[in-house]
């Protein structure tokens, strides 16, 4: 694919993303006309009057749907981009953002906060701190004699995941019925409670990580050849990998602690980006971000509108995602990996 065609395709994807914003804001249990929605948003931004719009409509669009839309886009972006970053870092196209125990740590933190709210009053913050703690432990376990190999990292990620998963198990066992329900819903992922505070916080945290990872796209390409080659081409592989893991983990942890565990996005979107644009991470990173945003926006709109009661986002993403990955494996597996 030539540079020009890549640019055009990326522009088309961006257009698609913008088009998808319309149904996301207008559709729902309470249908609101597009004109009113955008009149309201324009009024809010410009500080003018929002005539002819009821209080209920204002709450639904401005307080519920808009932050939720922003959160869906940010979560899709950050999970997809951190997936792309991890895959390059670990030279393994099957790695996902949760590989180092982010999701297990966050789930553990969330479960603790749900079962013991008086000890951990801040659910989201607890989930975030536990997610970071899990990755730190993973990194610490993998480090031996001043070196951190990819295999050691992946293995210790599995160990730490199992450990934190066990704690979640204990919490589920100890939890009262209502708490158990809450833990289960949290682990299925969703954007039910999205507020402007959540949206603002995630955007502020994810934006710098995204820019950094995009900037490091070339480093990711070189790192994906292996440590020795990366070193002989002039990079410090351990340092690069450390920086990339920090940025990717941070972005993923912020999203998991806000939205719960949403699988597939981080695995699938970089694959799709590679299929369209080739493996160059200077393209894979931004295109994964676009595709991740598009995918979660579609999934969340389906989750909100398909059934009278909301379906957890994680379930929708899995139902949409699994057939896609299967198709990818059967039809393109040989092509893209050249085996």
């Amino acid at each position: 694919m030539t540079y020009k065609r890549k640019l055009i395709t990326a522009a088309l994807l961006l257009t698609l993303l913008i088009i998808l914003v319309f149904p996301a804001l207008t559709a729902g249990q309470y249908d609101i006309e597009a004109g009113k929605v955008f009149g309201l948003i324009w009024g809010k931004i410009s500080g003018g009057e929002t005539a002819g719009i009821s209080r209920a409509q204002e709450v639904i669009v401005w307080r519920i749907r808009l932050p939720r839309l922003i959160l869906a886009l940010t979560a899709g972006l950050s999970l997809a981009v951190s997936g792309a970053a991890y895959q390059g870092c670990f030279r393994n196209p099957l790695v996902e953002p949760y590989i180092l125990g982010v999701s297990a740590g966050a789930a553990c933190g969330a479960a603790l906060a749900i079962v013991y709210p008086h000890i951990f009053p801040q659910g989201q913050l607890t989930a975030f701190l536990f997610a970071l703690a899990a990755v730190t432990i993973t990194y610490g376990l993998a480090r031996s004699r001043g070196e951190t190999s990819s295999v050691a990292l992946v293995l210790s990620g599995i160990i730490v995941g199992a450990l934190f998963g066990a704690v979640v198990g204990i919490m589920k066992y100890l939890a009262a019925d209502a708490q158990l329900r809450e833990i289960t819903f949290w682990m299925m992922g969703g954007l039910y409670y999205a507020t402007w505070d959540d949206a603002r916080l995630t955007v502020l945290c994810v934006a710098p990580a995204f820019i950094f990872l995009w900037w490091y796209g070339w480093h990711l390409n070189v790192l994906s050849l292996g440590d020795e080659e990366a070193r002989s081409l002039g990079l410090n592989p351990a340092f690069c990998r450390f920086m990339i893991i920090i940025a990717a983990t941070f972005a993923a942890a912020v999203c998991v602690s806000t939205c719960g565990v949403i699988a597939w996005v981080g695995l699938m979107m970089p694959h799709a980006a590679r299929m369209i644009f080739g493996p160059d991470n200077r393209w894979v990173v931004p295109v994964s971000a676009l595709l991740g945003g598009i995918f979660l926006l579609i999934c969340d709109t389906i989750a909100r509108t398909l059934a009278p009661a909301e379906i957890p986002l994680g379930i929708v993403a899995s139902i949409v995602g699994a057939p896609y990955l299967l198709w990818l494996l059967r039809s393109k597996g040989r092509d893209i990996y050249g085996r």
């Binding site: 196209p93 050849l225 292996g226 080659e229 002989s232 002039g234 590679r274 080739g278 493996p279 092509d335």
Partner: peptide, 21 residues
Amino acid sequence: PRELAARVAYVPQEHRPAFPY
């Protein structure tokens, strides 16, 4: 590493990277 790489190059045994460059 960067200064060294500008002067000394390494040609490893051929292999297949994980991604189809």
